[in-house]
């Protein structure tokens, strides 16, 4: 009875030490999910890929933004390909769905506006939400300014997108006026 009582505190202390060690070991292996430090896009993409595979995929948005910032420091037409390959890799690894990857790519590197995705006709769906559609397009245009102009030096692409935005604004104004005139 007495020996049990004297042994119990030892067991408790040993247990506590073991738990503390276990928690400490867990803490040391958790990913830090730090931003890529390199100013070179290729090596930044490699670092990001490693981090994403080590469990940082929840931070994908932030990593994409970091990579864009790094690419802005060394803008060139080939950057478009680097981003495309990175996104294709992300879908291959199951980090993104195809649709998500298309959205990430096209919002920044394509002339067409993803904000105009929709399955219903303009009179019934676009016109009642015209202001929101135009607002979303305007926001996407600034993303295209970053992707096309500042990252890829694709001036023509960006100015075509800008012109497209203005054309959509004009055509939607006329179409929606015509749609509402029939009511």
């Amino acid at each position: 009875m007495k020996s049990n009582a004297s042994r119990n505190p030892l067991l408790i202390v040993a247990g506590l030490i073991a738990t503390a060690l276990f928690i400490a070991s867990c803490a040391s292996t958790a990913p830090t999910c730090a931003a890529p430090q390199s100013k070179n896009l290729n090596s930044a993409i490699s670092t990001t890929q490693s981090s994403l595979l080590e469990g940082c995929h929840a931070h994908f948005d932030r990593y994409y933004d970091d990579l864009l910032t790094i690419a802005e420091g060394d803008p060139k037409p080939e950057n478009k390909r680097e981003f495309s390959q990175f996104l294709v890799w992300s879908t291959d690894k199951g980090l993104l769905s195809n649709r998500q990857a298309e959205d990430y790519y096209n919002r920044f590197f394509n002339v067409k506006f993803m904000s105009l995705k929709g399955d219903y006709n303009n009179c019934s769906h676009t016109c009642p939400n015209k202001q929101k559609v135009l607002f979303d397009m305007e926001r996407e245009l600034s993303e295209k300014e970053r992707g096309l102009l500042k990252v890829s030096l694709d001036n023509e692409g960006y100015y075509r997108a800008d012109q497209l935005y203005q054309e959509v604004e004009l055509v939607l104004e006329a179409t929606c006026t015509a749609c509402s005139a029939s009511r």
Partner: peptide, 27 residues
């Protein structure tokens, strides 16, 4: 406008009509 662009087109097809066959063509 109501029939051709409003009722027969989605915003995406309208965009494709405006942009033409080649999205990357010169402004």
């Amino acid at each position: 406008l109501r029939n051709e662009l409003g009722r027969k087109m989605t915003p995406w097809t309208l965009q494709e009509t405006l942009i033409g066959s080649d999205a990357n063509k010169t402004v």
